[in-house]
Nucleic acid binder design. Structure first.
Length: 639
RNA sequence: GCUGGCGUAGCUCAGUCGGCAGAGCGAGCGAUUCGUAAUCGCUAGGUCGAGGGUUCAAGUCCCUCCGCCAGCUCCA
C-alpha cells in the first residue's frame, strides 16, 4: 500500500503533511493535547465532520471546540441524541421526530402519548445523566437506503421512515449509534456521550411534525447544554434574571403601561411610561434633525386604492385593519411609505433636492395574529422612528453611511452593542439586475469604508431590494433585531416617482426605508428589560424624590421640590408621616434614581442629603449644586 | 390562526369529594414625629374572565366565547 501524503492548511496559515487517512482527531493531537481534549468536531474544506473522519485529500482544516459556533452546534446536536435515547428508554413506544441544535440549546420533537410533566423531565434528565456517565462512543455508520428504511420501520419510527423516503436518491444515508440507541442523522457528532456533562431540560411545548398545520402534534422538549458547569449556571441565571425583568411584569409594576383585553395588542401608556416614551422620541428627533431629516405627519387611514398601488393589498392585506364605509374599503396604515410617496409626488423633484429625508412618528397598525402578540415586543398598534430616503442611485453609499452614523449615536446612548447583517438578492427578485448589483456593492462599500464587520446573508433580501439588519445585544446578552435599512426599487416604480436629472432627463429615485429604534413600543420593552427598570437619569420618569424625615420639615421639603422642578428636573415630594427607612424602601422599589432626604439638619443649613439608587448615601449638598450635577447628567444622557 | 396550559381582591396566591369566598402584600383612615430598604391599629375591597348547561346546590363538573402564557406559524 502506498503511503500517500496529503497537505493540510491550519487556521493560522501553517501547513503540515500527513499520511492520507489521518483523522481530524489525530491532527488535533499533533497540534496539542489541550486542543485534542477540547476538540468536538472538525471543519474540513468548509464542511463540519466527525473527528474520526479520515482525511483523504489536501484540505483546509480547523478543529472545532465549544468556543466555535459550529462546535457548539455539534455539541448541542449530540445532546439531542442523549435526550432521545433517554426518552426511548423510559417510553419505548415514543416515536422520534427531529432534534436540531438551537443557538443556545436544542430540542427534540417526539411523539409521546402524553405531554411530559415537570417530574417526567426530571426523570429524563436522570436517565440522560446515566447515558453521559456510560460515555458511549458515538459512531457513524453509512447504510444503504433499504437497510435504513427497514430498520426504522421495524423499530416503529414512522417519522424516521418518512425522512428516509424524502432524502434525494443520491444522498448518503448515515446513522449514529451510541450504546443501544441508533438515530438517523446526518451528523456530525461529538466523539462520545461523556462529553455532554452539563445540561438541563427547560420546557416542553407542542409542535407540528415538520411545522405543518394539520400534521400530528409532537412534544417538543427543549434543553440546553454546555461544556463548562459555570456556563450552564450562568445561562440558567440569565434565564431567571430575564424572567425577573420581564417587561410585562415590570411595566405595570413601575406604572409605565398596561394592557387590557378590550384592546389586545395595544398598550395603555401611563403618565410615567409616557414620559419615558417621549424621551425616546425626543432623542430620535434630536439626532435626526441634526442629520437633515424633515418630520411630517401623514394620514393613517387610506382608501384601498392606495394599498393596491403600493402592493400592500396583494402582499400584506391579511395583516391590515380594514374597514368599510359608504361602500368603500379603507385600510389603516401598517407602514408610512405609501403616504410618503404621495408627498414626494406632490412636486417635481430635481436631482438637487435629493436625498430627500422624510421622517414620521405616526401611528401604525398591523393585525398580528392573536397568538403572536407578546407584551410590547409584539403589538398591533405602534409607532416607529420611521423615515424614507429618496435618493439617486449614486447617493446610496453616502446615505447608508449617514444612517449607520445615526445608529451609532442612538445605540451608544444606551450602551448597547450591535452587529450588522447584509441580506442580498433573493431568487424571486424584481427589478433590474444591474441596479441590484450596484446597490449591493454600495451597501457593502458603505460598511467597509466605516470599517464595520458584517455578516452576509445571501439571498435573504426582500424581493424589492437588499437590506441591512441591526441586532443589538442587551444587558443579558440577548440579541434583538431593531434597526433596519431596506432599499426599495419597486415602490418608486409602483408610484411612478421620478426626479429631473442634471441633463433634464427624468430618472427613477431609489427609496430607502429605515428605522433605528424600530417600533418605539418594542424598543421601550427591550429597554425595560435591558435596564431592569433601573433607567438612567434622563429616561427615569421620576428623577428625584424629596423625602422628609419629620412633619416639621414639610415646608422646607416642598420648597426644595419646587426649586428642583423649576430647575427642570422631574421631582416628587414624599412628605407622608412615615419613617424615613420606609420612604427610602418605597423609592428604591420604584427605582427612583435620587432620594433626597431632608430633615432638621438640612433645613437649618439649606441643604439636601443625596442618596442615589446606585451609589447609596452621598452626603449633604446645597440644593442648586445637586440640581446642576443632575441636570448635566440628564443633558449628556449619562448612563 | 393552530396545539397545550392558565384566568379567584390592585398584586402574589390558597380554596379538599360540588355544600356560607380566604391569606399575605398593597390601598384608605387613625395614631406615631422617627436620619438612609418595611412603626402600630382599624377599615374597605370579589359579577371567582364572559355567556350558557348539569344539579337541591357550581369558584369547583360540561359546552361556547374572550384574554393571557409557552410554542408553532406569520413577519409585503
Amino acid at each position: 500500500m502506498s503511503e500517500r501524503e496529503i497537505r493540510l492548511r491550519l487556521p493560522d496559515g501553517s501547513e503540515r503533511r500527513v499520511p492520507a487517512g489521518t483523522t481530524a482527531r489525530e491532527v488535533a493531537q499533533s497540534i496539542g493535547a489541550r486542543l485534542a481534549k477540547a476538540a468536538l468536531a472538525a471543519k474540513v474544506n468548509g464542511e463540519v465532520v466527525d473527528l474520526d473522519r479520515p482525511l483523504q485529500e489536501d484540505a483546509e482544516i480547523r478543529i472545532l471546540t465549544f468556543e466555535d459556533e459550529e462546535g457548539r452546534a455539534v455539541f448541542r446536536h449530540s445532546s439531542t441524541h442523549v435526550l432521545a435515547q433517554a426518552v426511548k428508554r423510559l417510553w419505548p413506544e415514543a416515536k422520534l421526530g427531529t432534534g436540531p441544535a438551537l443557538e443556545d440549546g436544542f430540542y427534540y420533537d417526539i411523539d409521546l402519548p402524553h405531554a411530559p410533566s415537570e417530574e417526567d423531565l426530571a426523570r429524563i434528565e436522570e436517565e440522560m445523566r446515566r447515558i453521559v456517565e456510560a460515555d458511549y462512543p458515538i459512531v457513524r455508520e453509512e447504510w444503504p437506503r433499504e437497510k435504513a428504511r427497514a430498520f426504522f420501520l421495524e423499530r416503529n419510527e414512522p417519522y424516521k421512515v418518512e425522512i428516509v423516503d424524502d432524502l434525494p436518491p443520491d444522498a448518503t444515508i448515515s446513522v449514529y449509534r451510541q450504546g443501544e440507541f441508533v438515530d438517523l442523522c446526518r451528523g456530525p457528532h461529538v466523539p462520545s456521550t461523556g462529553r455532554i456533562r452539563h445540561f438541563k431540560l427547560l420546557s416542553v411545548s407542542g409542535a407540528y411534525w415538520r411545522a405543518k398545520e394539520g400534521n400530528p402534534v409532537l412534544q417538543r422538549i427543549y434543553g440546553t447544554s454546555f461544556e463548562r458547569k459555570e456556563d450552564l449556571e450562568h445561562f440558567l441565571w440569565a434565564r431567571e434574571e430575564a424572567k425577573k425583568r420581564d417587561h410585562r411584569r415590570l411595566g405595570p409594576e413601575l406604572d409605565l403601561f398596561t394592557f387590557h383585553e378590550e384592546a389586545p395588542g395595544f398598550a395603555f401608556w401611563h403618565p410615567k411610561g409616557w414620559i419615558f416614551y417621549r424621551e425616546l422620541e425626543r432623542l430620535s428627533r434630536e439626532v435626526q434633525e441634526r442629520h437633515g431629516y424633515q418630520e411630517v405627519r401623514t394620514p393613517y387611514i387610506y382608501r384601498a386604492e392606495l394599498w393596491k398601488t403600493s402592493g400592500h393589498w396583494e402582499h400584506y392585506r391579511d395583516n391590515m385593519f380594514l374597514t368599510e364605509r359608504e361602500d368603500e374599503v379603507f385600510g389603516f396604515k401598517p407602514m408610512n411609505c405609501p403616504g410618503h410617496c404621495i408627498l414626494y409626488k406632490e412636486k417635481i423633484r430635481s436631482y438637487r433636492d435629493l436625498p430627500l429625508r422624510i421622517s414620521e412618528y405616526g401611528p401604525l397598525a398591523r393585525c398580528e395574529r392573536s397568538g403572536a402578540l407578546h407584551g410590547l415586543l409584539r403589538v398591533r398598534g405602534f409607532h416607529q422612528d420611521d423615515a424614507h430616503l429618496f435618493v439617486r442611485e449614486d447617493q446610496i453609499e453616502d446615505e447608508i453611511r449617514d444612517v449607520i452614523e445615526i445608529v451609532d449615536e442612538i445605540y451608544s446612548t444606551f450602551g448597547m452593542r450591535y452587529r450588522i447583517v447584509l441580506s442580498t438578492r433573493p431568487e424571486d427578485y424584481m427589478g433590474e439586475l444591474a441596479l441590484w448589483e450596484k446597490a449591493e456593492a454600495q451597501l457593502a462599500q458603505a460598511l467597509q469604508s466605516l470599517g464595520r464587520d458584517f455578516r452576509l446573508n445571501p439571498g435573504d433580501g426582500a424581493f424589492y431590494g437588499p437590506k441591512l439588519d441591526f441586532y443589538v445585544t442587551d444587558a443579558l446578552g440577548r440579541e434583538w433585531q431593531t434597526a433596519t435599512v431596506q432599499l426599495d426599487f419597486q415602490l418608486p416604480v409602483r408610484f411612478d416617482l421620478h426626479y429631473v436629472d442634471r441633463d433634464g432627463q427624468e430618472r427613477r429615485p431609489v427609496m430607502i426605508h429605515r428605522a433605528i429604534l424600530g417600533s418605539i413600543e418594542r424598543f421601550a420593552g427591550i429597554l425595560v428589560e435591558h435596564f431592569a427598570g433601573d433607567f438612567p437619569l434622563w429616561l427615569a420618569p421620576v428623577q428625584a424624590r424629596v423625602l422628609t424625615v419629620t412633619d416639621e420639615v414639610k415646608g422646607y421639603g416642598a420648597g426644595v421640590r419646587d426649586r428642583l422642578k423649576a430647575a427642570g428636573l422631574r421631582v416628587e415630594l414624599d412628605d407622608r408621616s412615615e419613617k424615613i427607612g420606609y420612604k427610602i424602601r418605597q423609592a428604591e422599589l420604584e427605582k427612583v434614581p435620587y432620594m433626597l432626604v431632608v430633615g432638621r439638619r438640612e433645613a437649618e443649613a439649606g441643604l439636601l442629603a443625596v442618596r442615589s439608587r446606585r451609589g447609596g448615601d452621598e452626603g449633604a449638598m446645597p440644593v442648586e449644586a445637586f440640581a446642576a450635577t443632575a441636570l448635566e447628567r440628564v443633558r449628556s444622557r449619562a448612563l
